[in-house]
Design a protein around this nucleic acid. Structure first.
Lengths: 330, 330
DNA sequence: CCACAACTTTGAAACGTTTTTCTAAGTCGG
DNA sequence: CCGACTTAGAAAAACGTTTCAAAGTTGTGG
């Protein structure tokens, strides 16, 4: 049936002790070239595969990390995930993926599963500001790196993009195009990104009022609903700033469908610059973030913290977003 | 530092034996209501979290499954992944994600990691036809369900979509629009999906020649390159069938950029009907697949096989794709 | 030729659960 | 009130690794 070939079978087959096999597996430099070769041959012949759980149990730490994102369907997070997977897999770590889908309950449940699996560390885009869940993880010896969320404290790593600057850039761009009344279509204002982008937008407005339309989700569907709502209410702004490209794409479809022209009647700007922003009906002006990089750097920080806990220096990295101008604001 | 609170601490605190605590955790019905309450209280007070590796080691099987996809950046796989994560997380399973990125070497390495983690089962979209890797897994007692790939054998589960029918539908649609010369832009012809869609296309053509342009990747970038190549070579077909929407989107951009109008000069059809197909510059006709469903059903089959190995009946499920007509073929 | 250092290898004790066997304590019909 | 039956809980033996002290093996200089 299944293969009960353990480290002791290998040891026997190679004529050494189990301890030596373990050394070959984990500290090859500690063992002489001759025995190493013998053991490696035995491993190959017997098709031995180390039992990770046993190793984890004994060693006290595993070769897995957790990744908790808010919406796996959003290309932004997909790109981050791809970056994470790349470097984790390069360093021999497995990635356990969990999707909080914006629900705090689900996030909590997922973190429990991760804790049970004794992941070495967790990369998380927290769904709210409350740090107690993460502190609890840290108490358990699980490293935590915040992704797309700046750390407020110096004793933890984080990788983020300056969303306030991004919001300011977006609205400044809209104003420079002549817009005077500007609406901000956003996801839940419990999400830091949405809050910061609004703050940045308000800063760029310098006192003038920002009309805020808050949706429950940040999907194309929600964007389309927002469009319907604004049209129904009758007074359209000169320009719309959407908190992400998914909302913007939905908004674009909703507006176009109602015969409202972008950018002639309303200018539109999104956020994230996902691949598809450039390919949309009216190509979308957006705020680009170094997504892939975000995932890579976060993982590098986490694994550095895991593998070299003594030399590791916590870092709070903040990338700057970049304006990409396309048709939707011309 | 970290929390060494184990099952025996809980037992002591609750005044019972470790075995009883284990029973409360795993077979609550086997223990009297009173002791159960005591134990549960102790668990809560001590903040006990079960050590998954120890459980796995002793029990011989884990609460994790592996998911191996070909391109995590492709919305098709993202949707599948979301479906997988949903049902796995519902049933208390953790999902280990790995991305083969089309590389057989990487896929193999990832499967090894999954085997080491002693995942209960693996959901995989294989990057080629060779079944030996998967047989090796099965020998180890790891269940395998093929995703987006029909099983050739009755002793394994699979969930797929009829790609031959999809290819036929696509090309039939193009011909009914008046196209006579048709090109097929595809990813590597080692990938089953690409092969089958071509076969379907050829069937619809009934002997007429299908011009095949094979690219190394199935990304927007590759699509754009394909466009450049076709334009450089000078003779454009009446219609282009792309093996996925990513290619089609890139193709669309490449054509538009060169001043070629879609659908007036060339009709264009994609495959997958990702969310963004509807939002593109010229909205994209595509072949829709029940992606989310694919992930859900595959996971349900896998977990059924894991949790009820005796009553489980292997199934090879084949969904039918659906034509979605938009501007790019009008 | 010996003492000592440097390097290898061994053997046994963990790691924290689950599982199986067994004992003690109830329960019930005759 | 006694034996047969049921049930709750306890005790101890795994599971397959890693780790660490100790033993063994070489090699070197005096």
């Amino acid at each position: 049936m299944h293969s009960p070939v353990g480290i002791r079978d290998v040891a026997e087959h190679a004529g050494v002790s189990p301890g030596t096999v373990s050394n070959v597996l984990n500290r090859p430099e500690k063992v002489s070239a001759a025995t190493r070769a013998k053991v490696e041959a035995a491993v190959r012949e017997l098709g031995f595969v180390r039992h990770g759980s046993a190793a984890t149990l004994r060693a006290g730490h595993s070769k897995t990390i957790g990744l908790s994102v808010i919406d796996i369907g959003n290309p932004f997070f997909t790109d981050v995930t791809a970056g994470v997977e790349e470097v984790a897999s390069d360093l021999g770590y497995a990635v356990i993926l969990s999707n909080s889908a914006g629900s705090r309950t689900k996030e909590e449940r997922n973190l429990l599963v991760l804790a049970e699996q004794r992941v070495r560390g967790v990369l998380i885009t927290p769904s709210d500001e409350d740090p107690t869940r993460l502190d609890r993880l840290r108490e358990r010896g699980i490293m935590v790196v915040l992704v797309d969320h700046p750390a407020h404290r110096p004793d933890q790593c984080s990788v983020a993009v300056n969303d306030i600057a991004g919001g300011t850039t977006a609205v400044t761009h809209l104003r420079s195009g002549g817009a005077t009344s500007i609406a901000y279509v956003t996801g839940p204002l419990t999400i830091r990104q949405c809050i910061d982008r609004r703050a940045g937008a308000e800063r760029a407005l310098g006192g003038a009022e920002l009309r805020v339309i808050e949706m429950a989700a940040m999907t194309p569907r929600a964007g389309q609903q927002a469009a319907a709502k604004m049209i129904a209410e009758g007074d359209l702004p000169d320009a719309i700033f959407c908190a992400n490209d998914l909302l913007a794409l939905g908004m674009l479809r909703g507006l176009t469908h109602a015969g409202i022209r972008v950018p002639d009647d309303v200018a539109l700007i999104g956020y994230d610059d996902i691949d598809f922003a450039a390919a949309s009906a009216v190509s979308l002006t957006s705020i680009r973030q170094p997504t892939h990089q975000l995932g890579r750097v976060a993982t590098e920080l986490l694994l550095d913290e895991c593998d070299h806990p003594d030399t590791h220096a916590h870092q709070q990295i903040m990338f700057q977003p970049e304006l990409v101008i396309r048709e939707s604001t011309r």
